[in-house]
Nucleic acid binder design. Structure first.
Lengths: 115, 115
DNA sequence: TGTCAACATCGATTCCTGTCGATATCGATG
DNA sequence: CATCGATATCGACAGGAATCGATGTTGACA
């Protein structure tokens, strides 16, 4: 995994001014997180014992149409936050831990900045 | 600070299904992070030795109009990510560490989920 | 008090996004 | 091969957001 260098320590934000293209990639992920339905989808996937949830579970968890849920799943997948796998008739989604860790690390500030 | 319970451990996502109103509050913050300009603004503020940056610094760092930067600062402030303080003729912005820590903790998964 | 510089707000425009219904795809199963 | 259920894609619509120029506000200073 070539993203380890992004995780080596905390304080990504303060390290140096974010470049434009780097900021664009990160912004895509945060934009995907910037919707209540998508946050709840991630939460449901994360909460499953097996580490994955099928679309049918998700559809049942929201008062939204099936195409809408499918759209949100696509946004999360395109942002690198979820992967999908088809098994039999169902499609299962699971988190991408590295991506989440990357974002988490970006937001963790050094101790000297949290007085 | 009454937000400490939100920080006690990792794996906020997996703890239990995010409620609608809780997800809405978090989504507002992530939506604010979901723009390259705003991420770079945060990065610039975080990178300052003093922990704060004045609007004049920020205006000079972008090829955007002054009202646009002001708009982005307002979004970040409304999302609870920045605070502002006026001193003399200048307005200084600084990070809200607790808010960043809350978001960072939400995205950090338990070790058993990162194989 | 009048003026200037720094910053915020307003109104308008253009583009993006969430949602839906309808339809297509794809596997399983008969 | 025909059908059915699960999921994805498409087209459309309404509301939101990023940007800009113009204008308002506020504090410093002469």
């Amino acid at each position: 995994m070539e993203e380890l260098n992004l995780l080596e320590c905390c304080s990504q934000l303060a390290r140096e001014p974010l470049g434009e293209e780097e900021a664009a990639g990160l912004a895509r992920a945060f934009k995907a997180l910037g919707d209540p339905v998508r946050l709840r989808i991630l939460s449901i996937v994360a909460g499953h014992e097996s580490g994955e949830a099928c679309v049918c579970d998700l559809n049942a968890s929201f008062d939204l149409g099936q195409p809408t849920i499918s759209h949100h799943l696509k946004v999360l997948k395109d942002a690198g936050l979820l992967t999908s796998q088809r098994r039999a008739s169902w499609v299962y989604y699971r988190l991408v831990p590295d991506r989440l860790a990357q974002l988490s690390a970006l937001l963790s500030l050094p101790a000297e900045m949290t007085p």
